[in-house]
Design a protein around this nucleic acid. Structure first.
Lengths: 354, 354
DNA sequence: TTGTAGGCGTTATCAA
DNA sequence: TTGATAACGCCTACAA
């Protein structure tokens, strides 16, 4: 250790601050936690000591002492798709772990593509029971207003998967969906390999910001780099496998020479069924979203050629870390919280479980 | 804010165990921490109470009480490449954070591709000073023996990036390099798009298990799925840009019609220089490893077409979590610790910093 | 406006 | 072989 700089091994505590500042523990605590009832002179002295000693509070000890319990609630769309089911699964798994770290997780399904329902449910939440909410839903004025309102009551808010940038949400946990669409486009372009080709884009809903952004990115790349590919208008499948299975025959009848499908939303089951039943699985290049048990099988069999994905475990863990940081007004490690755009070929699929 | 104090679902503490088992706190502690001096009957009674109440120890409180400090040491190859520099960077960044969680990180460079040096350094480590080591190095009998020896002294050992399966290492933190090679092969095959093509493979060293495995996986896929591609013998670049730059002209002179390069190791600077200087950057499909500032620029410019990568932040954080768990004999969350094989096209490169 | 004392869940040091 | 009791770093009544 150098004679001058602080000893790296010495971790000052509130006691040290109190001693150096010449005040009591309680006063140090008041200053640290911005509580009233301390003279400005004293505040100054404490701050000086804090800076001098390089004090950093021990969050674990603090939480232990105050017996703080964090309550976080997830709002997920009520659509019958594997991706949301995986999110739920991750929430319950993490819930078991976090129970021993004073953090309680819960979730609730909200009617899909129904902004009013979402707004209603957000507004009904009681700040006393909830420290933070993660919202996976559509971006509309009513939702935005509901968010801004509970934010005012001190509830931390995170947008999950699909961003809500017009609202006051504290953070967005999810991928850059424009870039995801661009990635899909790049893969599609390369895999189609030359010649005039037609590509069908299957989306979920025009209300879903994530779907819109993916389509946008996909189109960008196709225009920029693969001008000989025709991108057909979106097929709106509402993340519903059955609806999709009804819509697809028509689309393929109208345009029989479709060479590629970009499935930018959920409801892959319908697409896979249709392709396999019509013997199109080897002929058509398919780029899909989200690695689920269904899509991984399709990838393994060659029905799908690539999958763009986001790690559900990371999404949920990140959400909880961010919600915790925000409700404690602590900074977050932005690089740890950045969700990657995963690209899976059949070769680099992670093993299914455990 | 959230609920303070009592909960409906109550969390048992050592006090509850003591009460139910009819013993003192100290005895409960002895049982929990497997310390001697307790009758078997008493042990039984305590265990019964623990099971009955579903007790789980509060790690934060435990660490607070024992003032435990973890000392973890990283052994990294002394080669001048960006990937290792990024690992170092991640270690120092995490080090700042972990300092406040009683965990100290340090690292040391070890002569690259020199098993004897590695073995010597491992053997010199003092168990009193180090709770865990992460080793990124070659797999040889001498290294294996050195590892087995310090393991016996209670030091936790993790193999980093390149596995050491013949040793007693507690865990491997890194990607499945065979699958990584397969992924590279799949991309290369698709991007080459038909016709009889030749592919050059640049590797680092035959001593490095990760490099060997990547080559193996690459060859597998080329043979299985792209039989019309000729894979040339490996060029051994020792992760050294300058050496590589000297070797490449010869390789391209011998085989002028090389259509693709799989750069499976480090030293990309040499490859990039060579390609750009010879106007080959647009003509040759290049798949490389590790997203670094150099390779990302190459990707952005189109010199590289795809990059297989592993997240250095995740590698280091995972190593620390695992080392911590292992030195406390705690289980690890295998799915959180699995390192993904990342695929990057220019479209899904994460933003450089911040 | 400030200080004292006790407690959070766990571990460690005594003495019994 | 056991049990009080005092830490650990922090927060919070309650007193002064």
């Amino acid at each position: 250790m150098g004679k001058h700089g602080r000893d790296i091994n010495f971790k000052p505590t509130v006691n040290d601050i109190a001693r150096v500042a010449g005040v009591s523990l309680a006063t140090v605590d008041r200053v640290i936690n911005h509580r009233p009832g301390v003279r400005n002179v004293t505040i100054e002295r404490v701050h000086k000591a804090i800076k001098e000693l390089g004090y950093v509070r021990d969050t674990a000890a603090a939480n232990l002492a105050r017996g703080r319990v964090y309550n976080f609630h997830f709002l997920l769309p009520e659509s019958n798709n594997e991706f949301v089911a995986m999110l739920e699964q991750q929430i319950s798994e993490l819930s078991d772990v976090m129970a021993f770290e004073r953090t309680k997780l819960s979730f609730e399904r909200v009617p899909a593509f129904d902004p009013q329902a979402m707004a209603r449910i957000i507004s009904k939440m009681v700040p006393q029971d909830v420290d933070g909410v993660a919202i996976f839903g559509p971006e509309t004025p009513s939702v935005r207003d509901a968010i801004d309102q509970i934010k005012k009551h001190g509830v931390a808010v995170v947008a999950l998967v699909s961003d809500l940038p017009s609202s006051e949400r504290d953070h967005f946990v999810g991928i850059d969906n424009i870039a995801a669409g661009r990635t899909a486009g790049q893969l599609m372009g390369h895999f189609l390999a030359g010649g005039r080709k037609k590509v069908l884009v299957v989306t979920g809903s025009m209300l879903a910001r994530d779907h819109l952004e993916r389509r946008l990115g996909f189109d960008q790349v196709m225009t920029e780099s693969f001008a000989d590919v025709d991108v057909l208008p979106s097929l709106e499948g509402r993340d519903d496998p059955k609806l999709l299975e009804r819509l697809l025959p028509d689309a393929f009848a109208t345009t029989p020479d479709i060479a590629g499908v970009y499935s930018s939303a959920a409801g892959n089951a319908g697409l896979i069924n249709f392709l396999q039943r019509n013997g199109l699985d080897d002929k058509v290049i398919v780029v899909g979203h989200e690695l689920t048990s269904l899509s991984r099988e399709a990838l393994a069999q060659g029905t799908f050629d690539a999958i763009i994905s986001q790690d559900t475990g990371h999404l949920i863990r990140s959400t909880v870390r961010v919600l915790r940081a925000k409700s404690d007004r602590l900074p977050i490690n932005i690089s740890q919280e950045r969700i990657r755009i995963d690209v899976y070929l059949k070769e680099n699929m992670p093993p299914l479980c455990g």
